[in-house]
Write a protein that binds this DNA or RNA. Structure first.
Lengths: 341, 341
DNA sequence: CGACAACTTGTTCGCGCTAACATAGCATTA
DNA sequence: TAATGCTATGTTAGCGCGAACAAGTTGTCG
């Protein structure tokens, strides 16, 4: 009854449980590990003793002997951005539900050195598996030359590393937006991309190009942004000067917000004069002025699938699985046919 | 040279290093633990052997005997919001720099049960210290009745728990905004608050009330929002109907965004007819239309101070420290004196 | 009834490391 | 010179657990 071990300072160990239950410590271990060869009577006695003492198994001792830490390492850059942090939330939650601890390493500047450092800490910690969410070019070779001896799942860079991965089909998302714009009658569709060393930035450029090519249209102007609203604003001022451009696809919502402001200041009405579309569907985008047409990525689904893949590798030793989540176009108020026809 | 242990499958252990260096494994341990009683010659030999074998100390064995895990547990709700995730980034970075692993538990729904579950996992993991970032009322009693036996630092709820804490002075931030609005000549200043069970929401309400009282003004209308742009929008429609209100302080930037849209739709010009201020200074807020006047919280500083406090407790056993970070008013385009005087 | 299998439980060992103690070597002092 | 202290190193034990093996118990079948 009540929390035992009140006065004493040593947490109960397996041997203490064994004594109370009148069995050997190994039997306690068997109960804890759900070994089938324990009689119901014994199991109950042990469980009662565990409850009575408030016993909790020592993780360090357990991992020393099993050589597994019940820990998954998560390496992330941009962990305070909306998309990545949403995915992280799901990853971490799914891992915890599966009984794993989650060790996190968020890196601010992405380089081979910082990535390696973080991964080495994970091996020091002898994590059972690793999730990598670093949507930069540099991740490819860095991971390839590292050859970790635990399962690794890469978010956002599936396939190319030879490792397992999950990703949102960015190109498909971009194609959907651009096709939508083309369907509205736009013929010169600009793009404000993310920095070229980002994997997602490149995929969205490809999608934009692909959709235009499919429709027999030539590329509109491409301005490289920096994912920020400020970058979008500057790109917008530049694009506003070019009156041929009647639609702009921004590679994320923040840049789209910047575009909206730039166009407002330049006297180009959205969507009457020019259409704008974003990417990500951040929660605020429905309240931009006008509400933003954008692409919803399944961040939540992505994170959960990521852990599913990792758990499968942990359990079965399967490797190289690739999961692709399809994003969804969300049409709101920033896209329309041209006012004057 | 190069990475040794190529063909063999067992990672080198201390004994292997000892053999190569021609010393006992204990001497290797002493070198690793910077014990001063090791001669320079021996130290060098050992370090060479460590480098040659690529030896890395086994964390599990180490924590089994030291009873410390070199791990800090971080419990967070809202880990995908801008502010909390920025703080988390800093917390995690500072902890890692201090040589700690960071175990994260992000909870989606905040309740005594989920908090306790997460904290129990931390004790299972025998973390050396805990950081709690759960800005809800429920955290107070939950922590009080739990009495963990490791240092705990609470973010955003300093003082009240008897535990150490760091926080941004929310009330001061709110007072600064409201004083700014009063200075511009506003006399009826409304507030769109966060949900009442959030600590920050209450503090900002207090600040708003306090600044009004100091100026001899009575409270303007108070509408409870939900932190979201949609909530701000709905509150804005309600407030727009009341033409006495010439300024509104929103408890965060997302709600301010919603206000902006609601006022635009209601034909109330910002800032000519009505001023709007937010709180947080999210990166996009400078590109809202108009750019948002808001309060910048030192999320980064907060996170780093949090770990400083925790490390101090770990080192010296000091307890109950409270650090308060002062926020800063950022005046942009949504606040002004009234057009008509 | 005896031999054998299947189930249940106990005993021993070692995972890799640090703490505590033991020991050897050397310098210092009365 | 012997006693004393200090430094550098080695030896041993044990942290708490699970794997491997040993042993006891029950049931089954010829």
């Amino acid at each position: 009854m009540a929390a035992a071990s009140e006065g004493q300072h040593r947490a109960p160990v397996m041997e203490d449980v064994a004594r109370v239950a009148g069995v050997s410590h190994q039997t306690v271990s068997r109960v804890l590990n759900h070994n089938p060869n324990v009689s119901d009577r014994t199991r109950e006695k042990v469980e009662r003793a565990i409850a009575e003492l408030g016993y909790r198994r020592n993780t360090a001792a357990r991992s020393l002997v099993t050589r597994r830490s019940q820990t998954i390492g998560v390496l992330a850059s941009e962990m305070s951005e909306y998309g990545p942090s949403s995915t992280l939330l799901a990853v971490q939650e799914a891992a915890r539900e599966a009984g794993y601890f989650v060790s996190i390493a968020g890196i601010r500047d992405v380089s081979a050195r910082t990535i390696q450092e973080a991964l080495r800490r994970f091996t020091d910690q002898s994590v059972d598996g690793i999730v990598v969410q670093v949507p930069h070019d540099v991740i490819f070779e860095t991971l390839r030359e590292l050859s970790l001896d635990v399962p690794v799942v890469v978010i956002g860079a599936a396939g190319a590393t030879g490792l397992s991965g999950v990703r949102v089909d960015q190109e498909s998302g971009a194609r959907q937006v651009v096709a939508h714009l083309i369907g509205l009658g736009h013929r010169t569709i600009g793009h404000v991309s993310g920095p070229r060393d980002w994997i997602d930035a490149k995929a969205r450029i490809e999608g934009w190009r692909g959709a235009l090519a499919d429709a027999g249209l030539s590329d509109g102007p491409l301005v490289e942004g920096d994912w920020s609203a400020g970058g979008g604003y500057r790109a917008g001022l530049e694009l506003a000067a070019n009156t041929d451009v009647t639609a702009v696809f921004a590679a994320n919502d923040q840049m789209a917000l910047g575009l909206l402001r730039a166009f407002a200041e330049s006297g180009r009405r959205v969507p009457a004069d020019i259409s704008v579309a974003g990417f990500d569907d951040v929660p605020e985008s429905g309240y931009y002025q006008p509400p933003l047409t954008t692409v919803r990525q399944g961040f939540e689904a992505l994170g959960r699938r990521c852990i599913e893949v990792l758990l499968a590798e942990l359990a079965e030793g399967s490797r190289g699985a690739t999961v692709v989540v399809r994003p969804e176009l969300v049409v709101r108020g920033t896209t329309a046919g041209l006012a004057g026809g």
